[in-house]
Nucleic acid binder design. Sequence first.
DNA 1: TAGATTGTTAATCGATTAACAATC
DNA 2: TAGATTGTTAATCGATTAACAATC
Lengths: 212, 212
Amino acid sequence: MKQSKLISKAVIKRLPRYRRYLGELKKKGVEKISSKDLSELIGYTASQIRQDLNNFGGFGQQGYGYSVKQLKEEIKGILGLNNRYQAILIGAGNFGSALANHLDFQKLGFELVACFDGDPAKKGQLLGELTIRSESDLEEFCGNNRVDTAILCIPKDAVEAELDRLYSLGIRSFWNFSHYDISRRYSDAIVENVHLSDMLMTLCYKMNNLNS
Amino acid sequence: MKQSKLISKAVIKRLPRYRRYLGELKKKGVEKISSKDLSELIGYTASQIRQDLNNFGGFGQQGYGYSVKQLKEEIKGILGLNNRYQAILIGAGNFGSALANHLDFQKLGFELVACFDGDPAKKGQLLGELTIRSESDLEEFCGNNRVDTAILCIPKDAVEAELDRLYSLGIRSFWNFSHYDISRRYSDAIVENVHLSDMLMTLCYKMNNLNS
DNA sequence: TAGATTGTTAATCGATTAACAATC
DNA sequence: TAGATTGTTAATCGATTAACAATC
């Protein structure tokens, strides 16, 4: 991995898709693949694939192609999926529960180490393998454990106060399911936003504009 | 709204954000806003805002700015949020329930008219205002009701068979939470993908590459 | 009228695609 | 060696930013 120059956002967004398709190829026992064949599978141009991969180093071999296994590992490394960033879940409602139950955090570079909910009735309940903690135990937990990331599954109105708490506890990385604008308040925060309603609106737009 | 030329994807992706901020301004009672002021609020350049809006028509007034109320309505119209596209939910697990309970479909151009789940034990249970139906009632329901969109909240392995069924029932619009590649199978399908694990990987990458 | 701010054209920047020499 | 396919440079395309004339 060379990666001296800055990698563009567009490239980074494509990396998980590369990883996914390479994983499938590997499962099928495919050992090598050319940019052309991968192109047909994944839906990027062969040229773009070679361009993308060469941001990080020359993983291929002229006249041969790319080793599926090696390339998959390289991309894992680039994405940093071998990390175990410790994440806490804030809000154990429908969305929070869905994430906790269905995402394979380990494969994604994270470990879910705790979840918190403001509803006293939920305290002590099980969410997957975790016991739901009271919101008020947040400071104590963060004092005793390293916490790298907070997953915010709480309503927009509750985010600002919660964010201030988390930030003051040293947390700088957020996976945000609300529409609250974290980056505006803390410019040094690392934020990934999931705006589901925006996505559904985009689908609505597409449906409206089929013939164009 | 003129919209003779084709609107770029980049512009469309920004529209929901415009709508959101304009909604907030309207709530606060703000009547007009200049591209410069909106720029500081929303985080796009003033130039970009004017460029974006002029794809659809001259909504502003020189020397004055934009009417918040009018602009919000225009954007609603462009996105097509006054529609009531009839959507059905396939899969009433954690994610499906989260969507059904927390999204305001009416504001997003849709109406959730039914939900289906393969688990017989769930049949008849309430999900919000809807009663969960059996997967096997899908054909009958689609025969008696207009269905514009299917929201796929089922595991990847189950998607292909289900997709074929839905497609054969005439459904061409999909909100897809799995990693199954719908567009590859049906090139005339309108698809919006939500790849949560890809997003989390992107966050992982960002955390790894803070200093660059 | 003078000031403000749009609408729009031109300039810049970035990302994708095409081409091809390098090389396995 | 000949064929295949990469790595990389150059060309194209698209999106963003800057500039400014039009105009409210």
